[in-house]
Computed example of a mutant assay.
Amino acid sequence: MPEHHPIELNRAVPGGRVEIFAIRDEEYPDGWFYRFQYYHPETGELLRYDDAHDDDDLGWHHRHVRFGEDTEIEFHGIAAHVARFLNEIATLADTETTND
């Protein structure tokens, strides 16, 4: 069995911090276990994508937002998922900056 190395990122970004973790795992749908989180160190989580468990209402791929409902999110590969997450963070950061 080949050894899989995780994709990891943890860094400050406008409006907070981003943590990205993903690793190949054939026990998860689409072959990846992942969690992506955008949060502010003082006020908490703002956005999270994950496939931590199969949810009866949301399926495997989840999108959690601080002010809103958790939703199912489509998964089209890990690169596209990371890009979508980062684009959503950019939009949230712009909104946070313009509302100050």
Rank of each mutant, 00 (worst) to 15 (best):
M1A: 15
P2N: 09
H5E: 03
P6Q: 01
I7G: 06
L9M: 08
N10D: 02
R11F: 00
A12S: 12
P14M: 00
P14G: 09
G16W: 05
G16L: 05
R17A: 14
E19F: 08
I20R: 01
F21P: 00
A22W: 07
D30M: 13
D30V: 13
F33C: 12
F33I: 11
R35K: 12
R35D: 00
Y39H: 09
H40N: 11
H40P: 03
P41C: 11
E42A: 14
T43I: 13
L46H: 03
Y49A: 01
D50H: 04
H53G: 08
D55F: 14
D55M: 08
D56M: 04
D57S: 08
L58H: 11
H61A: 06
H61P: 03
H61C: 06
H62R: 14
R63T: 10
G68H: 04
G68R: 05
D70I: 03
D70C: 08
I73E: 02
E74W: 08
F75H: 10
I78K: 01
A80T: 15
H81S: 15
V82Y: 02
N87I: 02
I89W: 07
A90K: 13
A90L: 07
L92W: 02
L92H: 03
D94F: 14
E96Y: 14
E96S: 10
E96R: 13
N99T: 13
N99E: 04
N99W: 05
